[in-house]
């Protein structure tokens, strides 16, 4: 038996919004410690990993591990039926072929229950190695979203170069070129830790997709190391995260 209750549907809506542009379907792996999800996009260029620890939930019960295969489009349709300030309870029986979502209005005067059919998805799990990133940058999530949007005007490829002087985003195409550089700020909005400078090239449209998670967090963490996927991490309060990994472009 699995049961998890969140005080606000809004965060669940935001989490699904952050995933559904990359993934159509996905399996939530629920255990007694919380919910995990990991999936690649169709082209196997990026990977998204979601973790919600049980402390994130108002109520959490999971007697035995259960995998819930969900169609994110359908889930979005159900979430549209709820108000952001409704409480939501997700329930599934052991070996069930459906999941139940119940919404309760803030004043408790309205309840609505929906059933969603579960999918039997054959998803492979990848081992994500522990990586020591040579460059770790924290910046406001809205700033990162703005940079990705502005870069997209110029080119499909975005070069991210990080050194002690700052982090620089560059794009050049037929129209011209764009360079945006952020230095560390004394107030701590932007922090930059660099062991070794790194410069890598990435597909801008994936970066833009990751910024769908912007409403979830004030700050985003970016991790760069030579010849490994870029890490873009949005914390979910203190109880979890969405991590996006993006394979760099490489010289053929």
């Amino acid at each position: 038996m699995f049961e998890a209750r969140l005080a606000s549907t809004l965060t669940l809506k935001r989490i699904v919004d952050a995933l559904r542009e990359i993934l159509n379907q996905s399996t939530l792996d629920c255990s007694d410690t919380g919910i995990q999800m990991q999936a690649m996009d169709n082209s196997h260029v990026s990977l998204v990993s979601l973790c919600l620890r049980k402390e994130y939930f108002e109520k959490y019960k999971c007697n035995r591990n259960i995998s819930l295969g969900l169609d994110l489009k359908s889930l979005t349709k159900v979430l549209k039926c709820a108000n952001g300030d409704d409480a939501v309870t997700i329930k599934a029986a052991d070996k069930a072929d459906k999941v139940e979502l119940s919404f309760e209005s803030a004043g408790k005067e309205r309840t609505a229950d929906y059933e969603l059919r579960l999918l039997n998805l054959d998803q492979e799990h990848l081992a994500i190695p522990e990586t020591e990133y040579n460059c770790v940058v924290h910046m406001p999530a809205t700033e990162f979203a703005r940079i990705c949007r502005d870069m997209a005007t110029f080119s499909e490829s975005v070069v991210i170069a990080c050194s002690k002087e700052g982090i620089k985003f560059s794009a050049s195409g037929e129209m011209g070129a764009a360079n945006i550089k952020l230095s560390e700020t004394t107030k701590g909005e932007v922090s930059i830790q660099v062991d070794e400078p790194v410069a890598l090239s990435f597909a801008g449209r994936y970066l833009s997709t990751f910024t769908r998670a912007t409403p979830l967090a004030e700050k985003v963490k970016i991790g760069l190391a030579p010849d490994v996927p870029l890490l873009v991490e949005y914390p979910i309060e203190d109880y979890g995260y969405i991590r996006y990994y993006l394979a760099p472009k490489v010289d053929d």
Binding site: H44, V45, E124, L126, S201, V228
Partner: peptide, 14 residues
């Protein structure tokens, strides 16, 4: 020439 790498060449199956 630059080509897009695949995530599966960095992260391997469990």
């Amino acid at each position: 020439k630059v080509k897009q790498g695949s995530i599966t060449s960095f992260f391997t199956k469990k």
